[in-house]
């Protein structure tokens, strides 16, 4: 290696050293450490004790709460993510039409997505209050007696899905940016051909938008497995574990029961699930995601 090359390497590594050090100390090493911890019993006070596969064995065979948390999380991902895409994309289509006040509408829909998660949670605990909340009050004006929402095990998860839709303006903005890139000439050509609006959506808009939708799908699925703050504040997993999200259960195991080895095993199962789900989605993308036609 020439002196100049060595010099270049040195300078390069100096510039990226903040990340390299942070990556080693806060990501790479903890990543391996948690794998090791997942094979131990560890309560933070005493030294970790090797227990082999005992944590994994207990999780899969003796822990109904683990299965419950998986079910809650998968249900949420399967409902909230597609619904969020549908609503965000639908709104973007509506707001892409040239009408008066377009900017105002866009702002109105976007604002909820920048409200801090803690504030959103506090606001909706109040709005969904069964006795004096706004939601049941409004339902009463149309003659419906509203449920107990967050306090009712049959409605609690639905409530959280509805609340997640409130923030759909964030992804709407991403779709709007994508829609701007669809070449107008294609629409013009299709108008000449007399294609219907539905056909234009299917044949022109949709193919151009699939990469953006794919991105939102991946982020949504990963996000579901990390969904924590809203559930922690609004329901804390209840009632009757009906909103016991995976991350919430993991958090309780780690920091409420100080069951750090067990929680590390859960973290690694989470990792495998996220990698698996992402890989499956990436495998399907050949079938429906179209890159590079713009």
């Amino acid at each position: 290696m020439s002196r100049q090359k060595r010099q270049q390497n040195l300078i390069g590594y100096l510039f990226i050293s903040p990340w390299l050090i942070g990556f080693s100390v806060f990501t790479a090493w903890p990543f391996l450490q948690s794998l090791w911890l997942s094979f131990t019993r560890y309560d933070i006070i005493s030294e970790p004790k090797w227990v082999g596969f005992a944590n994994y064995h207990a999780l899969f065979t003796q822990d109904p709460q683990f299965w419950q948390s998986l079910q809650v999380t998968f249900t949420y991902a399967a409902v909230a993510v597609p619904l969020g895409i549908l609503c965000g994309f639908g709104l973007a289509l509506l707001l892409n039409i040239r009408i008066k006040g377009q900017e105002i509408y866009r702002t109105l829909f976007y604002i909820p997505s920048i409200v801090p998660a803690v504030a959103t949670s506090v606001i909706f605990v109040w709005i969904m209050n069964p006795q004096i909340g706004l939601l049941n009050g409004l339902l009463k004006t149309v003659g419906i007696i509203g449920p107990n929402w967050l306090n009712d095990p049959t409605w609690s998860l639905t409530s959280l899905v509805l609340i997640s839709l409130w923030g759909v303006g964030g992804s709407m903005v991403i779709y709007l940016a994508g829609l701007k890139d669809v070449p107008l000439s294609l629409y013009e050509a299709s108008l000449v051909d007399g294609a219907s609006a539905w056909h234009r959506l299917k044949a022109i808009t949709w193919p151009f938008m699939t990469p953006v939708i794919f991105f939102n799908l991946i982020m949504g699925v990963i996000g579901s497995f990390q969904y924590f703050t809203n559930a922690f504040i609004m329901t804390n997993g209840g009632p009757q574990d009906s909103t016991l999200f995976y991350s919430l259960y993991l958090f309780n195991r780690a920091f409420r029961y100080l069951d750090m080895g067990y929680a590390s095993a859960m973290a690694w199962i989470l990792f495998v699930i996220v990698v698996g789900a992402t890989s499956i989605l990436f495998m399907t993308q050949k079938k429906w995601v179209q890159y590079g036609n713009n």
Partner: peptide, 24 residues
């Protein structure tokens, strides 16, 4: 390669490193 590794860490769920980082 390092750049790709860095991008990859963005998709890593925080829970996987949470406990050792807390202990640290």
């Amino acid at each position: 390669v390092l750049f790709v590794v860095m991008l990859g860490t963005m998709a890593l769920p925080g829970q996987v490193t949470m406990i050792p980082v807390f202990t640290l």
